[in-house]
């Protein structure tokens, strides 16, 4: 069963007809030619398909596109704008990737995560969830925990953490 939807993807309005079964990830990749989000597991278990959906980091493999009609989506490609986002520059400076497959998801996740920390959200390793949290509390342990939804099989975690640490400043 088909549905007509409109999305705003990386700043551009995009219309398409999708099968209701089509995930947001497949809509982006197979219908709209937006291949920055990657399919690593298709079950929300790896984070490679992460984008910013209305400003928040989400996996796109577990969302039906039809339920996201009207959403604003920013992928790693869109984050770059005409050049590169500071988070992307930090990943380059720190060699925060190897094969690059998880990288667009890592970067979207990192941008979303830093926003969450700025908004004062605690994490599972925040010593006192009842206390206030701000961006200065974002130490390595916090970054590691908050970025654990993005698997990297090449093992670039150490460099990802140092990249985010720098970009979050």
């Amino acid at each position: 069963m088909d549905a007509e939807i409109t999305l705003r993807v990386d700043g551009r309005p995009r219309q398409c007809t999708v099968d209701t079964r089509t995930t947001l990830l497949d809509t982006l990749r197979e219908h709209l030619g937006v291949s920055a989000p990657k399919k690593g597991c298709d079950h929300g278990q790896c984070g490679s398909c992460t984008v910013l959906l209305d400003g928040r980091r989400v996996t796109t493999c577990l969302a039906f596109a039809v339920a996201q009609n009207g959403a604003e989506i920013t992928t790693a490609e869109g984050l770059a704008g005409d050049g590169e986002h500071p988070m992307q520059r930090a990943f380059l400076d720190h060699d925060g990737f190897q094969c690059g497959f998880c990288t667009p998801g890592q970067i979207c996740s990192a941008v979303g995560m830093v926003d969450e920390a700025r908004a004062g959200w605690p994490s599972a390793v925040t010593p006192d969830v009842a206390g206030s949290v701000d961006i200065d509390d974002l130490d390595d342990a916090e970054i590691r925990e908050r970025m654990s939804g993005n698997l990297c099989r090449c093992g670039a975690y150490v460099n990802i953490v140092s990249a985010i640490r720098e970009a979050a400043r």
């Binding site: 990749r29 197979e30 030619g33 291949s35 920055a36 989000p37 990657k38 399919k39 992928t75 790693a76 490609e77 984050l79 770059a80 590169e84 992307q88 990943f91 380059l92 400076d93 060699d95 990737f97 690059g100 497959f101 990288t103 667009p104 970067i107």
Partner: peptide
């Protein structure tokens, strides 16, 4: 610095399934 770094951090480096093909 990795020569393919900019393409990888922006998600524009094409992996196998990313290649746009007609009539898939």
């Amino acid at each position: 610095e990795r020569l393919d770094g900019p393409a990888k951090v922006t998600g524009t480096a094409p992996y196998a399934f990313d290649h746009a093909v007609p009539n898939p």
